[in-house]
């Protein structure tokens, strides 16, 4: 049952990557990017890389999203493309 779960996450991963690049609102793009980080964390957990999944859960889904938000709120939220 692991393999279909794997493929499902990989498809979600591509969808999240494309959405985070297409959304014009940078705050929304950052949130989708946080979801992308969490999907990667799930993928690594299925691969048995628990330490890497743990790091990605704290870094990718947590801290890097906060850093993006801090910059966007100090600059401009709208993007032209």
């Amino acid at each position: 049952m692991i393999v279909p779960f794997d493929i499902l996450i990989l498809i979600f991963l591509v969808v999240a990557a494309v959405i985070s690049l297409c959304v014009k609102d940078l705050l929304a793009a950052t949130m989708v990017f946080g979801a992308y980080g969490f999907l990667i964390c799930l993928l690594w957990a299925t691969m048995g890389a628990v330490d890497v999944a743990f790091t990605e859960a704290t870094v990718g889904a947590g801290v890097s999203t906060v850093l993006f938000v801090a910059t966007i709120l100090n600059t401009r939220r709208k993007s032209t493309d």
Binding site: A17, L21, D81
Partner: peptide, 16 residues
Amino acid sequence: KNNLIKKLIGLSLFQT
């Protein structure tokens, strides 16, 4: 991409 934040998101995708 034209926006620098979008470029950074792209770089992070490349890295992951």
